[in-house]
Design a protein around this nucleic acid. Structure first.
Lengths: 140, 140
DNA sequence: AGGACTGTAACGGCGCGTAATAGTCG
DNA sequence: ACGACTATTACGCGCCGTTACAGTCC
């Protein structure tokens, strides 16, 4: 309960690279709720809160909605200590994890396609630049 | 002016893989305007229109806004016949093309980061599944 | 006491999905 | 005249950016 470790939103934004607006919005949706407030109402974030925000940032490329991310984070929390779960709970958790793994692989494939596509376009643009530069090398 | 080549929106959606809503929205923004309408008001698309829609679809991974895409498409149209442009026009066009190439490379880097990130997460999820499966292999 | 920081509330915007309702085509 | 297709209008959503105004901290 080391009080000194609590940050207010500005520092949090600085350390995570997220905007103030975004951090507040994440609270609004229940995704990352600060663990405290000052008497005046200023949000106070613990290191764990900051870690959670960083985790969310890392998950962005998956293309999940914020609600889904909250779900996934909760799932990861629940399965952090698997020995404390019953067999039925483990079954459920594993099934859900599997579903997320599937979606992640789909996403990876999409990113691969997008990447190939983007490289293609970059080359086409470069070719066009060459085509536009060519006339002048011949003085006309 | 072969009339038989004009498609209405349903077929266009089918051939491009875009939704009706999306095709209509692209018209709303001026990105792809159908070259005709029936007397009753049905949109009619030429093959060139369809090609333009396909070009837009291919450009999506670049993360440009629809307005920027319209700008880029116009730029590519203008530079299709470079010998018909004056030196000043060529300069302008080349500068704009350069800017888009830059942005495209930025985008490619972002996609690479996203991809690496997604792979990382996939592995973490897989590890969690293993950790959850482990207890049961020991019957406890 | 003053300046930096933070609070809430509200509107805006992109790129569509999704009705709801009504007209058009072969 | 029937069914399949299409038109317009409008609201909603996700994820914030951007004011505007007021309060808080030290």
């Amino acid at each position: 309960v080391t009080e000194g470790r609590l940050l207010q939103i500005g520092k949090v934004a600085e350390r995570t690279g997220l905007s103030l607006r975004t951090v507040r919005y994440y609270e609004e949706t229940g995704l990352v709720v600060p663990s405290g407030r000052t008497d005046g109402g200023f949000r106070l974030y613990s290191d764990a809160d900051v870690d959670r925000l960083l985790a969310v940032k890392a998950m962005k490329p998956l293309g999940l909605t914020l609600d889904e991310m909250a779900d996934l984070l909760a799932l990861l929390d629940r399965t952090a200590a698997p020995q404390e779960l019953s067999g039925r709970e483990l079954d459920r958790a594993n099934a859900e994890l599997d579903a997320y793994v599937e979606r992640t692989h789909d996403r990876i494939r999409k990113l691969q396609r997008d990447l190939a596509n983007a490289r293609d376009l970059a080359q086409q643009l470069a070719a066009r630049i060459d085509a536009c530069a060519a006339p002048r090398t011949r003085g006309r």
